[in-house]
């Protein structure tokens, strides 16, 4: 079963890599933000998968939870900045 989760993790890794394309090249700031939040979601799941692999998932849930909560704040801050930009 570990092998299965590991392969899911690897799959997510590949997805993260793909999303990184948008982060690095992705024209404009908005695409990047979208891609980063996508990466955040994948990270969240990958953390849990690592927890499963380590057999200590309860230790990793908190981190995932933090991501669920704070990724949101981060995105809000960026979008607020983008909205308020220009009219300082």
């Amino acid at each position: 079963m570990d092998g299965f989760f590991l392969s899911i993790g690897v799959g997510l890794c590949i997805l993260v890599f793909l999303a990184l394309y948008r982060v690095v090249f992705g024209p404009g700031i908005f695409n990047r933000v979208a891609a980063v939040s996508a990466i955040g979601n994948k990270t969240l799941i990958m953390l849990l998968i690592m927890g499963v692999i380590y057999k200590r998932i309860e230790m990793f849930i908190d981190i995932s939870l933090v991501y669920a909560l704070l990724n949101f704040i981060c995105t809000l801050a960026i979008s607020k900045y983008l909205e308020m930009e220009g009219d300082k």
């Binding site: 908005f30 933000v33 979601n41 990724n71 949101f72 995105t75 809000l76 607020k80």
Partner: peptide, 14 residues
């Protein structure tokens, strides 16, 4: 709660 809100916020900003 958070995901759609974030999506909304960023799209609104756009």
């Amino acid at each position: 709660w958070a995901q759609p809100t974030a999506t909304h916020a960023i799209s609104r900003a756009g």
